[in-house]
């Protein structure tokens, strides 16, 4: 008994000690946005199957969380690639540079439409960004003044809309989807009002970016599938999520037209559907050639069969870039062109 216990304890301690001096990493590590996650998953699996390299580790941490991990430094302990559903911010670029991550390649891989949808029903909704802003902002302009949001029914915003309670499920503030929604819908809708234009810059930002907290807007967590299920349970509610979820659930969900345009592959790629956002991934150049397989992984990611039209990423809902833009991106990415500091 004594010997066994001591032996077991010694093994445990030895294992821990051994792991402390971690062996050289032979696996690509990827973090980042939950929106880019499914695409990176697809590439990772294809890459492992095709090349026989060790399967990359892909973790969904959210855009901001991914940047934080990515910018922590150069070396085996830090991830090689991060996905983002918005461009890298100036503050993040600075953080990267401070930690020695000074050469990063930015790759624009395509577009993702943000869809607003409800369960299949007789009502076919067509909303404008201004109407969505009025329904979901914390404060709205009314008779030239900024007042707390008084609307509880769609018909109060516009008599042509149905006489239904406003109830919208959306992502929490940590989500890149939320950032995109605020930027593409709320801010643009907000700026159509004269009363808002009259405000100074800070006050305007306040009014345009704050979502209401009094019930009609419901934060539903990062799990988009949960939102889909809740919509099926409550036919009058709307939900905000990435286009790929709408694409997979076409038989139960129905998209809301924004400014008269329904989201589909054509309208998103052409920019006609106004609520789409670019998706990026960032590569740490110092890791290229050091982490085995990283270069081949990038080649697989930017290959025509993945991010090109009809590639396997478009099967998952990615809207590919136009031909010219794609050629540019592919050339820059394969050369490992370091990005410049973002403007703002």
């Amino acid at each position: 008994m004594t010997k066994l216990t001591i032996g077991v304890a010694a093994t445990a301690i030895a294992t821990v000690a051994m792991a402390g001096s971690a062996a050289a990493r032979d696996q690509i590590q990827i973090v980042g946005s939950s929106t880019v996650f499914p695409y990176t998953q697809a590439v990772a699996e294809e890459f492992a199957n095709k090349t026989g390299n060790k399967a990359p580790v892909v973790e969904s941490t959210g855009t901001g969380g991914g940047m934080k991990l990515f910018c922590q430094g150069v070396g085996e302990a830090h991830p090689d690639v991060t996905g983002a559903s918005r461009a890298m911010k100036a503050s993040e670029f600075k953080l990267c540079a401070e930690n020695g991550v000074d050469s990063v390649t930015e790759v624009l891989l395509g577009y993702d439409g943000l869809s607003i949808a409800h369960a299949q029903s007789e009502n076919h909704l067509d909303l404008t960004k201004a109407q969505l802003f009025l329904a979901l902002a914390a404060e709205v302009p009314q008779d030239g003044k900024i007042v707390p949001n008084p609307y509880t029914k769609w018909s109060e915003i516009d008599p042509s809309l149905p006489d239904l309670k406003i109830s919208v499920f959306g992502p929490p503030p940590t989500s890149g989807t939320r950032d995109a929604f605020v930027e593409l819908v709320m801010e643009e809708g907000c700026e159509t009002f004269e009363a808002v234009e009259a405000l100074d810059k800070d006050a305007k930002k306040q009014v345009c970016q704050r979502m209401r907290q009094d019930g009609p807007f419901i934060e539903a967590g990062e799990n988009d599938n949960l939102i889909v299920q809740r919509l099926q349970a409550d036919p009058t509610a709307l939900g905000i999520f990435g286009y790929s979820f709408l694409f997979e659930n076409q038989d139960t969900l129905e998209a809301v037209a924004i400014e008269g345009v329904l989201p589909n592959e054509d309208t998103i790629a052409s920019g006609e559907y106004g609520v789409s956002r670019p998706l990026f991934f960032y590569v740490k150049n110092a890791h290229r050639g050091v982490i085995p397989g990283l270069d081949e992984f990038i080649v697989e990611y930017i290959s025509e069969s993945s991010m090109g039209p009809g590639g396997y990423l478009s099967e998952r809902g990615l809207i590919p870039l136009g031909d010219e833009r794609r050629k540019e991106v592919q050339a820059a990415a394969s050369k490992g062109k370091p990005m410049d500091a973002p403007g703002s």
Binding site: A19, A23, T40, A44, N49, V57
Partner: peptide, 11 residues
């Protein structure tokens, strides 16, 4: 994380 291979050890 998403990994398409089963682990071969504790590391």
């Amino acid at each position: 994380a998403f990994i398409t291979q089963a682990p071969g050890g504790i590391l």
